[in-house]
């Protein structure tokens, strides 16, 4: 069998297992599984921004909240048809990301992180002060996913939607990664001056990758909105943006498999650590982060590299 066939088979098997899980899990585990899928989707997008393109931003959860609040406000508060609300929420996400990206992506290194941190705090304050429209600090509840083209998406089928969301995110990012644009992003990360000399428009590449990954975060946020049918500002807090960064670093930045591994391991770790560390699992994560950067800069995915040589990060 050729490499392409193995690749396609791998995708099919992964999708099969991920979809199969949706139908066998009980209600508690379904909830855990769904949130894990959201984290994986978020991590994939953030990994492309941070690991592949080298931009460190703390705005990913702010864009997820724009998507989630966007769709809920448009469809349930303002009564638009769900399909229209869905598309509009994504458009709003993309536009906001574009407006933020034009000035912000000029900032170098960690200054971008702090500007986007400030942006996400502004989004948070806006939601807190949004009155009845956003539900303030209490958030929004008492809404449900409306039937879509007459189909009522419920139970395991909603989990399947989230699996498709992850698959879509992964598909689009691997496609972009393998393209000219993906190589341009890595070149801008590693050596902007050389990339520019090779004809890469650095500013455009930075803006494009920021808008693309932020919009994907918005999509994941929309997916999250119907997991609990509750959204509140705390869910999209800064702490989660930190956790997302930690997932990428521990998983192995710059590789999709690393992002997924990191998201799954760090999302599930608190459940395993609960008996030992109680609520202090973040302490364990902090130690892991320090150790990972000092001793294993390529993260968990680096352990896999032994089996798959020749793939550049």
């Amino acid at each position: 069998m050729n490499g392409r066939g193995v690749h396609a088979l791998g995708w099919l098997a992964g999708m099969g297992v991920a979809i199969g899980l949706a139908f066998v899990l009980g209600s508690y585990h379904t909830d855990v599984y769904r949130k894990m899928l959201i984290w994986v989707a978020m991590a994939l997008g953030f990994n492309f921004l941070f690991g592949v393109a080298g931009q460190i931003a703390f705005s990913h959860f702010a864009f997820a909240s724009v998507g989630a609040y966007g769709v809920v406000i448009l469809s349930h508060q303002l009564g638009l048809p769900f399909g229209l609300a869905f598309v509009l929420a994504i458009v709003i996400c993309g536009l906001t990301a574009f407006i933020v990206a034009i000035p912000a992506t000029r900032l170098e290194g960690f200054y971008l992180a702090l500007a986007t941190l400030a942006f996400s705090q502004l989004v948070r304050v806006t939601i807190d002060e949004g009155g009845a429209l956003t539900g303030g600090t209490g958030g929004l509840a008492n809404y449900r996913l409306p039937p879509f083209f007459g189909v009522d998406v419920r139970g395991p089928w909603y989990t399947v939607c989230l699996v498709l969301l992850v698959a879509f995110t992964l598909w689009i990012l691997t496609r972009v990664d393998a393209s000219w644009f993906g190589r341009a992003c890595r070149a801008v990360r590693d050596n902007p001056r050389a990339a520019e000399a090779m004809g890469v428009d650095i500013a455009r590449a930075r803006i494009l990758v920021f808008v693309m990954t932020s919009t994907l975060a918005g999509l994941a946020g929309i997916g999250y909105a119907y997991v609990d049918n509750v959204i509140n500002p705390a869910v999209f807090s800064l702490e989660n943006s930190f956790l997302l960064l930690f997932m990428i670093i521990i998983g192995g930045s710059g590789r999709h498999v690393g992002a997924m591994l990191g998201a799954v391991v760090l999302y599930l770790a608190p459940f395993a650590l609960e008996p030992v560390a109680g609520n202090h699992y973040m302490l364990v994560f902090g130690v892991l982060i320090v150790l990972a950067i000092l001793f294993r800069p390529d993260g968990l995915a680096g352990l896999l590299r032994i089996t798959r040589p020749g793939k550049a990060a």
Binding site: I56, G109, F110, F242, L245, F246, I249, H280, M282, L283, F285, G286, V287, L288, I289, V290, I293, L294, P297
Partner: peptide, 26 residues
């Protein structure tokens, strides 16, 4: 160790985010 290895400044900044979490939880 990072400076000695010649790692980019961003690595040190990220390590210090880990230190931040350790101190907060501590």
């Amino acid at each position: 160790p990072l400076v000695a290895r010649g790692a980019p400044e961003l690595s040190a900044i990220l390590v210090l985010l880990g230190v931040l979490v350790i101190f907060r939880e501590g």
